[in-house]
Design a binder for these strands. Structure first.
Ligand SMILES: [Mn+2]
Ligand SMILES: [Mn+2]
Ligand SMILES: [Zn+2]
Ligand SMILES: [Zn+2]
Lengths: 138, 138
DNA sequence: TTCCTTATTGCAACTTTTTGCAATAGTATG
DNA sequence: CATACTATTGCAAAAAGTTGCAATAAGGAA
């Protein structure tokens, strides 16, 4: 019944394994929904799995991002946060007050296509953070 | 004659000071042109200014970015690099081979405007890293 | 030039993140 | 169920990045 169950076959199919640590971390990400720092993930996960280590959290978050199960996000601090992968979206962050807002990928899809045809690249990541000033701060 | 001279009046005008450390760091950034990690900047700067410390390099790079003299860049690793601020541009990075390419801001300007009118934000940072697969790897 | 204000630096302690390697434990197979 | 293979983990040490605070020095004013 844990939301992390659904990921087991995805991992197996690629030759990876489902472990209690990955369960715990996926569980944390699923039930939060928002971006969490590795430390925040660790603090939540260790409640469920007292033996989990920070090292494993860092490695697992990177692993999940590489395999498309989590989105890495550049937070205001310049550090990475992570979020369970669901709908394609991007973020706007206010440089002044930190206020954050999600925008659907559809809004920038045509720009992605323009970039692709101009560069020859195929853009894979649909989770970008744009910085600016929010309506209050500008 | 050092490229860093031109920044002195900009700093003074805002109540900041030009120091040998800032000279050295701006010099490194100017003559590199490309994105450098804080460690790389330190290793170059310490050759010119043996007493400079890593702490100062971290603080100075953040300071220069906040004041628009340097662009912070999210490198493939997820860590921050820095580059002297010149022409507005963005980056495409290949997730597979790491190949990097610059694209002019003009190419995404209309999308920035679309995002601004849809969100109410004023987008200030014109130095974004997009990830994908290059023409060879896709 | 000298004095004064305070922005900036260096140091030391601390936190966060990364890495190598040996021990552990998923899971496929018989 | 037992065995083998190797992906994954934990540990310890190292590297990278941050923070508080006292000492230093840039640069405006006299
Ligand atoms: Mn997100
Ligand atoms: Mn750049
Ligand atoms: Zn704001
Ligand atoms: Zn490539």
């Amino acid at each position: 019944m844990s939301c992390s169950e659904e990921y087991t076959p995805q991992l197996r199919a690629r030759g990876y394994r489902m472990t209690p640590q990955r369960h715990a971390i996926l569980h944390v990400l699923c039930h939060s929904g928002i971006h969490l720092s590795p430390t925040q993930v660790y603090q939540q996960a260790v409640k469920e799995l007292p033996d989990i280590t920070e090292t494993t959290v860092y490695r697992t978050l990177e692993f999940l991002a590489e395999n498309g199960l989590a989105y890495p996000a550049h937070m205001g601090s310049g550090h990475l946060g992570y979020q369970i992968a669901r709908n394609d979206h991007h973020h706007l962050v206010c440089r002044n007050c930190g206020k954050e807002m999600e925008v659907d990928h559809a809004l920038v899809k045509s720009m992605y296509q323009k970039l692709e045809s101009a560069s020859g690249y195929k853009l894979t990541d649909s989770h970008v953070t744009f910085f600016g000033l929010c309506s209050n701060c500008k």
